[in-house]
Structures are given as structure tokens and as C-alpha cells.
Design a binder for these strands. Structure first.
Length: 572
RNA sequence: CGGAGCGUAGCGCAGCUUGGUAGCGCAUCUGCUUUGGGAGCAGAGGGUCGUAGGUUCAAAUCCUAUCGCUCCGACCA
């Protein structure tokens, strides 16, 4: 590919809108172009990256026995009404056609694939079956951001499997898990597989894993233990607190005056105790459908509540902190809420990190008073013990064999066991061995293709620009011809053709610009290797300069050695 | 949806306080000279100052409304 005849423009200056490295660099390197909030066009080099990613995904999924299909991007609303998600999926872009029929742009495709499946598959003998597609998705995110990282329109690979029983689902789930590992390994990305929360997609107790590309700018927090290998999304992570023993004894509880001490900080200071010897009350409004109820959650004074866990425990669709007016409505005094003397009508949860036999200080349920020597097993008998605390750096794993740390990650893949949630809702049945209808079990498996491209840049860049892993780089070689001499220019032309004939993907920079300009563009675009043919090195020693982008290693090779050197380094 | 900020040439910005001929750098085009880390000189093209009202002799500038974009939060498979 000749740059002199290509549509490619790089930018020295960064568009003000771009905040994170991948977004900045992809704009500057001329890979993408923005049309609107969260809506991007892929330019030639950007598209090639996406195609490279897709090729790896297809290859591994086909090997894993999946079949590719292509589902319509526009879906009839009735399918979503059937599954009950028409009103639940708030980020779905809905519209009507000329005949006033409901339609939407697919944010995901469980409904469509179920519809296909129920119309085609009749027997248990056809199972298991796994279908996938690589297609554009549209999610009308409340806040799109970071370029391709969280765009509204994006390309996703989504796969769906159908099974007769749990064993079959487990097997295919494992196959896809392994395929995903191979996919991200082949792409040259540093990733972690973490346990995750099923969220709105599946129930919270179903098996689900996220594939997270490790990067500082990631939107997700991951709890990771180097010693034991434990890894989980912080939303899901279960850990143990380290070194925070409770006070012990048998003293009866008693109220103490704590005027104005409405925060844990103030109470601990006033009573000269550790924060983890206090119990903090958090009041939440838990909303399920039309109904909402008030729940009081107790956690240790210096812990943070994990709202995803709360949501899972209460089975609510949404949880949110209760407003002050709601507190007074149910007779709670903000800043002085505690388990003793609390109305039995209020549902109470107590975190497992609180020692049931320990002694704690908590609010006395009246202004300016706290209660000390509260022993949960004796004094908080209405409270249901559940895991609510947000894991944090320094915690121990549950088996106490390792210490965990927090990392940030970009979720590039997510696999779920859906069970029969959708096959039931959509009435998908096949005949079982006895000829009776049964609802197959489902699994679903996603990879954000365009997000992978952004994540790869996020993980691999320096001051000069992008450093593409060879497997997903738009081209293999950046060939800067900086020859002025006509003879040497001809040699460069010859080398360009030779490389192409050898199957190497070459960007031939034959533009009439200075060498510095070409080197800067080369670094910015970030192809794995740059070669340079110039008058000096060629005329003096008939050598070609080879520079590897990832480590800056520079060497001079002869024309005979060139192809071998490149192929060995690129592993192609 | 709550909070903050920004809309002036393709990109980055100045001008706005105190109303009076729309500017700078990069990019683009032409010519000449250059060529191993974003070259130099000379010249050129490109903007109804987001949009719509209003105030005024006069609005990029003041007022009102509206649209768009970005960031933080809420939210998010």
C-alpha cells in the first residue's frame, strides 16, 4: 500500500474532546473519525485492525465448533415484548416504521436467536448447538465516553449456545472459556479472567466470567491475588478483612451521649475507638418493578457497601440510597442509626465481616446518642447476615492464603450461563428423549470487537504513539523510503514489491516529505516494525535499517536477510 | 437525570471583561530551496463566530431561548 495514493491524515494536535490515550491516539493516527456522541467511523487503518481482530475471533470460534450467522440489526419490538425486555432495556433505541410498528436497533440478540432457534430446531438430537455473529450493536448509553471504549454504536461478537442439560452447558461454557483465552493470547493482550456478577443478563448466582484487559484507564475494578490466582470483579469479589479483630466481652449494651457526632469519623474520635469497632448504617431504597422497600444495611465503620451485592441479596432491580425525608418517614435519625431499638418492621441486613460475637458501637436511634457494647448475636437478632462489603486492597482471600490487590481493567469479553431464562420467556422448546417438550438451557458469550481495538491501544502505547501487537496491527511493516538518489529509489521500489510478494503487509511511505515526518508518522501509527532505505546506508554498505517499534531495537541487514529477519520478528 | 465546562477555518486556540474592518499556530494549495526525527522562504484559498430571537446606528462580544459536545456523578450485559 502506497501512502502517496492513500487517504490518511495524522494530527500533531489532539482534539480537545479526547481524554484517554487510546481515544487520543486513534484520532491522531487517523484510525477513526467521529460523527456524533458515541458514534464513530472506521477509517482504512482502523478498519484493518477491526478485521484482524475479527479474523482471530472467527478462527478460534470455528475451531471450537461454533457456526457463524448474521442477524438483522433491526428487530421487531414484538420479540422484545415477548421476552419482557421491551420496557426493561433502557438503552435500547426504539422507533416505529411507516405502519406504526415497534422496532429497535439490536443492543443484543437473545430474542432473535431464540426466535431463529424455536423455528428451526425441533429435537434434542440437534443439541448442543452454538451460533455466533459479528455485527454492529447499538446501545443508547446514558453517557457514552472514551471513543471506541464506550461508544453507542459498536461492533460485537455475540454467541449463543443451546443445551439439553447442565453438563452440556458446562462443557461448551468451558470450551468457549478456553477459546476466549486463546483469542486474547493470540491478540497479544495482557488479560485477566475474573468472576463476575450476572447483573441484568442472568441471575446473580449463575456462572459468569469477564475477560478484562489490564489497563490503568479501565472502567472496572478487579480484585486480584498473585499468590492464589483469585480474580474477580470488585462487584462480585468475596474477601476477608485482614487484622481487624473485634472487641470482646459480655458487657450489656448502654447508650452514651455523642452530641453532634453523626459520622463514623466523629464517633470513633469522640469515644477513642477504632473505626472498625463501630457499625455504620446505610439505608437503601430497593426497587423491584413498581414496589420499593426500605432496607437498613449494617457494615463495619470503615468498610464500603457493595451495591451490586446488595442488589443481588435483596433481589431488587435497582437500589439507591434513601433520601433524608424517607429516613424520617420510617423513624430513622440520620447519623444515629443502630441495630438496637430499631423497629422490627424494617428489614435489616448485617454484613458478614461484623463479628457476631464481638462488641461494637452503633447509633442509638435517637439524636446525639450512640449505643456501645452491642453484640450482634445477642442484640441484633432480626438482622440477616449477608456479604455486603466492598472488597479492597490488602484483604485476604477467603482461604487466607493470599493478599489481594486492586487493578483496573477493560471488559472485553463476558461469558454467561443463562439457564432457561430466555427459552422459557420465548417459549423455545425441543422434544426430549420421551418426545416431551423441554426448554433448552442457554449460554451467551460476547466480545466487544471495537473495544478490543481501543483496549489494545490503551495497553500498548508510549509518547510516540501506538505500539500494535503484531497480530492485530493494521499492517506488518512501515517502509519509509527516504532515498533522494534515483537509483536507490528504484531499489526501494523493488524491495517494496519483493516484501509484498513474500506475503508481508507493507505500508510504503513514498510521500514527498522529510524523513523526520515519516518517522513521526511511523511511530504514531505503531506498526510492529519500520524499515528504512536511504542513500547513506544503501550506498555505503547496501544495508536496510530495521527498527522494532516495541523496544526500539535497530539493526542493519542486507537485502537477502531482510525478509527472513522481518518474518522471524513478526512471527508470520 | 444532577453538577461543571466548552461551541470562533479541517485541528489546537486568541479575541468577548470595556460592542466598531475576524486573528494566530498546525494542516491544505502554488512556486523555489531543502531532506536521517514533524524543514525554510514567498504567496494563496478556507469562517453567515453552533442556531434562533432580542437590545443597539452597530453584536463573535450584551440579554433570552435552544441545539450540540466534553468531563464528574448516577447509570451501564
Amino acid at each position: 500500500m502506497r501512502l502517496s495514493q492513500s487517504l490518511w491524515q495524522t494530527f500533531k494536535e489532539v482534539p480537545a474532546e479526547a481524554e484517554i490515550p487510546s481515544h487520543r491516539l486513534m484520532l491522531r493516527a487517523g484510525l477513526i473519525h467521529k460523527s456524533g456522541a458515541g458514534i464513530y467511523n472506521l477509517l482504512p487503518f482502523g478498519l484493518r485492525v477491526v478485521q484482524k481482530i475479527e479474523r482471530i475471533v472467527r478462527d478460534e470460534l470455528d475451531k471450537a465448533g461454533c457456526q457463524e450467522i448474521l442477524m438483522s440489526m433491526v428487530t421487531p419490538g414484538e420479540l422484545w415484548q415477548e421476552s419482557g425486555r421491551w420496557d426493561l432495556m433502557t438503552e435500547m433505541l426504539k422507533f416505529k416504521d411507516k405502519k406504526n410498528r415497534d422496532l429497535c436497533l439490536s443492543p443484543t440478540n437473545e430474542e432473535t436467536v431464540s426466535d431463529i432457534f424455536r423455528n428451526i430446531v425441533k429435537s434434542y438430537k440437534s443439541l448442543p448447538a452454538t451460533l455466533y455473529q459479528i455485527n454492529t450493536k447499538f446501545r443508547d448509553e446514558i453517557r457514552p465516553r472514551f471513543g471506541l471504549m464506550r461508544a453507542r454504536e459498536f461492533i460485537m461478537k455475540d454467541a449463543y449456545s443451546f443445551h439439553n442439560d447442565k453438563e452440556s452447558l458446562d462443557l461448551v461454557y468451558k470450551d468457549l472459556y478456553d477459546a476466549y483465552c486463546r483469542i486474547f493470547e493470540r491478540m497479544g493482550l495482557e488479560y485477566t479472567v475474573v468472576e463476575a456478577d450476572g447483573g441484568a443478563m442472568a441471575s446473580s448466582d449463575s456462572q459468569t466470567h469477564e475477560f478484562q484487559v489490564v489497563a490503568e484507564t479501565g472502567e472496572d475494578e478487579i480484585i486480584y491475588c498473585a499468590q492464589t490466582g483469585y480474580a474477580a470483579n470488585i462487584e462480585k469479589a468475596k474477601t476477608k478483612r485482614a487484622n481487624a479483630p473485634a472487641l470482646t466481652g459480655d458487657a450489656a449494651y448502654e447508650d452514651v451521649a455523642t452530641p453532634g457526632a453523626a459520622t463514623i469519623e466523629a464517633v470513633a474520635k469522640l469515644l477513642k475507638i477504632e473505626k472498625h469497632h463501630t457499625i455504620k448504617a446505610l439505608v437503601y431504597e430497593c426497587i423491584s418493578g413498581e414496589e420499593s422497600k426500605i432496607i437498613v444495611a449494617f457494615i463495619l465503620g470503615d468498610d464500603t457497601l457493595n451495591e451490586v451485592k446488595l442488589k443481588a441479596v435483596t433481589g431488587a432491580d435497582h437500589v439507591r440510597a434513601a433520601s433524608e425525608s424517607m429516613l424520617s418517614l420510617v423513624g430513622l435519625v440520620k447519623g444515629f442509626i443502630g441495630p438496637v431499638g430499631l423497629s422490627e418492621k424494617i428489614e435489616v441486613l448485617i454484613d458478614e465481616a461484623i463479628d457476631h460475637e464481638g462488641l461494637y458501637v452503633a447509633g442509638a436511634n435517637k439524636a446525639d446518642f450512640h449505643t456501645k457494647n452491642i453484640k450482634p448475636s445477642r442484640d441484633a437478632i432480626h438482622a440477616k447476615r449477608v456479604d455486603l462489603r466492598l472488597a479492597c486492597s490488602g484483604d485476604l482471600t477467603l482461604d487466607e492464603k493470599g493478599v489481594v490487590a486492586v487493578r483496573r481493567g477493560i471488559e472485553v469479553g463476558h461469558i454467561f450461563q443463562l439457564g432457561n431464562k430466555y427459552t422459557k420467556a420465548m417459549n423455545v422448546t425441543v422434544s426430549d428423549v420421551n418426545g416431551k417438550p423441554m426448554h433448552p438451557l442457554m449460554g451467551c458469550y460476547g466480545i466487544g470487537i471495537t473495544r478490543v481495538a481501543a483496549a489494545a491501544v490503551e495497553q500498548n502505547n508510549d509518547e510516540g504513539g501506538i505500539i500494535w501487537p503484531a497480530a492485530i496491527a493494521p499492517y506488518h511493516v512501515y517502509f519509509a523510503s527516504i532515498a533522494k538518489d534515483e537509483e536507490v529509489s528504484k531499489i526501494a521500489e523493488g524491495i517494496y514489491h519483493e516484501l509484498q510478494n513474500q506475503g508481508l503487509e507493507v505500508v510504503f511511505d513514498d510521500r514527498k516529505v522529510g524523513p523526520g515526518f515519516k518517522f513521526k508518522d511511523s511511530d504514531l501509527l505503531g506498526l510492529p516494525v519500520r524499515i528504512v532505505v536511504g542513500d547513506k546506508t544503501w550506498k555505503d554498505q547496501e544495508k536496510i535499517e530495521v527498527v522494532w517499534r516495541h523496544n526500539g531495537e535497530k539493526l542493519l541487514v542486507s537485502r537477502e536477510e531482510l525478509v527472513g529477519t522481518l518474518k522471524a520478528g513478526l512471527k508470520v
